[in-house]
């Protein structure tokens, strides 16, 4: 019965793991709802902001904000949004893999890169991979606040203003639905020109009140803040749903494992009983002879 006892302990351990994963699944499910609400609430603002910025990038103002100048790209800054905790399937790894591929291509083309990481996972990964991590923000919690991000992002923006980097891109997971998260890399500055703005191609400009400089400064600050915030919120919704899915499949797997182990255990027990009976019968036969 030695084998049977081992199997029994194994089953007990898998069962307790299953309890943990199913608890995590439920926690993630309830957090996911809140994270999705937060994401949905900020999405319209970020979308409109992108549109407006797309228009502004096509305008021809007398004052050119540094963010509107595209210059020769020698060094690119990446803002990488990741989760603080693991156990969320391939969420972070998919993003990092996509990024590493991009970065390798850029490096081959002679462009340098530096990073600004949000979330412990990105920090750990890019420390390991090597490269300059210029700034980082971790432990934002479930309800990230824009104030926690501003400082980190400012490091990047200052570097851009000083000409240390020539382009800033932001990488995050785009929330498609609960099952699908898409790793996304977007250009933040210089401003990407808007799409489907054919009717705006001709030479025109806005009226700026009180002045182009003040208005553009105000607008661009809001643009950066809202986009970074949106990415973080989106990533956190992705994190929760990815975790929920991962934990659900872990729970299912544990269930299957338990079933299999149970079967093996039953067989072992049966075999032991059969053996005992045959021993008894054999013994009785020997005695009666």
């Amino acid at each position: 019965m030695a084998g049977a006892k081992e199997i029994r302990t194994k089953i007990a351990s898998v069962k307790s793991t299953q309890k943990i994963t199913s608890a995590m699944e439920m926690v993630a499910a309830s957090k996911m709802r809140k994270a999705q609400d937060r994401m949905q609430a900020t999405r319209p603002y970020a979308e409109k902001m992108r549109q407006v910025i797309g228009h502004v990038a096509l305008a021809n103002p007398e004052y050119k904000h540094p963010f509107m100048h595209a210059r020769e790209v020698k060094r690119i800054g990446f803002i990488i949004v990741s989760s603080d905790r693991g156990l969320c399937g391939g969420l972070n790894n998919n993003l990092f893999r996509a990024l590493v591929r991009d970065i390798r291509a850029l490096r081959d083309a002679g462009t340098e890169v530096e990073y600004c990481t949000i979330g412990t996972k990105a920090l750990g990964f890019f420390r390991r991979v090597g490269g300059k991590v210029a700034a980082q923000a971790t432990h934002l919690g479930d309800a990230p606040h824009i104030d926690d991000l501003v400082g980190t992002v400012k490091v990047m923006l200052d570097a851009y203003m000083n000409g240390e980097i020539d382009e800033i891109r932001i990488a995050y997971n785009n929330f498609v639905n609960t099952m699908t998260q898409k790793p996304t890399v977007e250009q933040l500055v210089p401003l990407p020109p808007g799409e489907n703005a054919e009717d705006l191609k001709h030479h025109w400009d806005y009226i700026y009140e009180p002045g182009a400089k003040e208005v553009l400064n105000g607008l661009l600050t809001r643009y950066i803040e809202s986009l970074v915030y949106q990415s973080v919120v989106e990533n956190s919704a992705c994190e929760q749903s990815a975790r929920m899915v991962a934990m659900k499949s872990a729970t299912d797997n544990a269930g299957e494992l338990i079933d299999e182990l149970q079967l093996v255990y039953n067989k072992a027990r049966q075999a032991a009983i059969t053996q005992e009976i045959s021993e008894i019968v054999g013994g009785a036969a020997a005695v009666s002879n």
Partner: peptide, 19 residues
């Protein structure tokens, strides 16, 4: 309520950005 005073915008207004 624009920063320089209230503005009224009718259709075909010239492009404008303000705080």
């Amino acid at each position: 309520p624009a920063i320089m005073g209230e503005i009224g915008i009718a259709p075909r207004h010239a492009p404008l950005v303000t705080q």
